[in-house]
């Protein structure tokens, strides 16, 4: 998953906010405050546009996108 497009996108979000892009697979992104809600909206827009994910699902919860590992699971379930 090191060079995956979603990881590149998350690293871009971190870089734009002056944060280190050296994150572990399980590091929390949003619940730790590393990324804010505006970054979350950018990620959600990216997931919809690039991966065709419908976030209107009643069970959607931002904690499902909280780490690279979470994102990997989320995208595999959405595929």
């Amino acid at each position: 998953m090191t060079d995956s497009p979603i990881r590149s996108f998350v690293e871009q979000l971190l870089s734009e906010r002056g944060k280190s892009t050296d994150i572990a697979h399980s590091d929390p992104l949003f619940t730790s405050g590393l990324l804010d809600s505006m970054a979350a909206t950018e990620l959600m827009l990216h997931l919809e546009a690039e991966h065709g994910v419908d976030l209107a699902d009643a069970d959607f919860d931002i904690s499902r996108l909280d780490s690279m590992a979470d994102l990997e699971v989320f995208l595999s379930q959405a595929a």
Partner: peptide, 19 residues
């Protein structure tokens, strides 16, 4: 408090409306 508002109001509205 910001997290509470974002978790329970912002994300649900963002995920559903004016897409």
């Amino acid at each position: 408090f910001k997290e509470l508002l974002v978790d329970f109001f912002f994300y649900p509205a963002f995920a559903r409306y004016f897409k």
